[in-house]
């Protein structure tokens, strides 16, 4: 998960956030890390670029991108 956090910080250019500042279960959007809808698109691109994963069902987005842990679980379960 630490690699994933570093990728998120780099992709979103979170200048004042260190990867270790992001808790495994911290919400990525709204009151958590404060990401917005443009960041959601950037995260979709990150999954494609780094893990060759395409999020086919847009309705899955809120569930997949809830926290770093849910993202990691999605990657793990789809990378067989």
């Amino acid at each position: 998960m630490s690699d994933l956090k570093a990728q998120i910080v780099a992709q979103l250019n979170l200048q004042h956030v260190k990867p270790e500042d992001i808790g495994d279960d911290m919400p990525l959007f709204a009151e958590g890390l404060g990401l917005d809808s443009i960041d959601a698109l950037e995260l979709i691109v990150l999954l494609q670029q780094e893990y060759k994963l395409k999020l086919n069902n847009a309705e899955e987005g809120p569930k997949v991108f809830r926290t770093v842990r849910t993202m990691a679980e999605y990657i793990k379960s789809h990378q067989a």
């Binding site: 992709q11 443009i38 698109l41 950037e42 691109v45 494609q48 670029q49």
Partner: peptide, 10 residues
């Protein structure tokens, strides 16, 4: 033309 990030486009 694949995997283009939205920020620079927007």
């Amino acid at each position: 033309e694949e995997m283009l990030t939205p920020t620079s486009f927007i």
